[in-house]
């Protein structure tokens, strides 16, 4: 099956972020970057589909400056077959601008299946996948936790709901955005890393769409107040209970 997986390079989220002097972005100095978690699930889902069916080709696509090549190589080291970088100086906030660039690249690729992560873990927009589907005129199922395309004609997808799940189907080709639960991304073996160095990585200019939405201001949440010690023995309990009821409102 010919599959495309869109991949975003995101900072390690387990970091204490600082705001850049511009006030509209995080300060990237000292940050570590990796593939967005959900994109990892999508890449793994694609690999498993083709491993099960045999043959096929999986293309990783990422939009951004040259540093995204590192993330694309990681995808290749997991076992994806080739990569395309849509070169742009920066990744705009506006998902539509990105979606147009991706759609332009995907349009002529005759892909059976186009996978996205449910969202990028840094921007949490959840918009690019569905927009791409719209631009390509393809059906879209979002936040999929189980995926079956074994008949080669239809997508059978499972989506988790609050306390339930639903099964959704649509014909191929289609766009699917992947939630966690599909499969844990594999750890690239050294064999995979070495093979990835020789796999094709094509660089093309990104044909970004118009940017209409921009970040006006970014702020960190207020520092958490320090804890309070009310006392050291049973005498402190009534006060603790009172505060939990009145202040914290958890009782």
């Amino acid at each position: 099956m010919k599959i495309a997986v869109a991949i975003k390079r995101v900072p390690d989220m387990d970091t204490r972020f600082k705001i850049a002097p511009s006030g509209t972005a995080v300060d990237e100095t000292g940050l570590k970057f990796d593939m967005s978690d959900f994109d990892g699930y999508a890449a793994e889902a694609a690999l498993q589909i083709n491993e099960k069916q045999g043959g096929g080709e999986i293309t990783a696509i990422s939009l951004g400056p040259d540093v995204v090549q590192e993330t694309l190589r990681k995808a290749l080291s997991m076992g994806l077959d080739k990569a395309v970088q849509l070169k742009a100086d920066a990744v705009p906030f506006d998902g539509y601008a990105i979606a147009e660039a991706l759609a332009a690249e995907l349009k002529g690729g005759s892909y059976d299946l186009i996978l996205f992560g449910r969202m990028a873990i840094d921007s949490s927009n959840q918009s690019v996948g569905p927009m791409v589907a719209e631009l390509l005129g393809l059906p879209c199922i979002s936040a999929v936790s189980q995926l079956d395309v074994s008949d080669g004609k239809t997508v059978k997808a499972r989506r988790e709901l609050e306390g339930a799940y639903e099964e959704v189907t649509c014909p191929l080709p289609a766009v699917v955005t992947i939630d966690e639960g599909v499969a844990r991304p594999r750890y690239p073996s050294l064999k995979g890393i070495m093979a990835a160095k020789k796999k094709p990585l094509e660089v093309k200019p990104a044909q970004l769409g118009p940017v209409t939405a921009t970040v006006a201001k970014m702020e960190l949440p207020p520092e958490r107040a320090a804890g309070r010690i009310l006392g050291e023995n049973a005498d402190a309990v009534p006060e603790l209970v009172r505060l939990l009821q009145t202040e914290a409102k958890v009782l």
Binding site: D12, D14, R184, Y187, P188, L190, K191, G192
Partner: peptide, 29 residues
């Protein structure tokens, strides 16, 4: 097992990732 086949107990994955990303096997900041 690890380098050719990427086959290891799943508990090791966080340790490898922590070492790679955070420079320590428990992913402390």
């Amino acid at each position: 097992l690890v380098l050719t086949e990427s086959r290891f107990p799943e508990e090791l994955m966080p340790a490898f990732e922590g070492l790679e990303q955070k420079g320590n096997p428990w992913s402390f900041a």
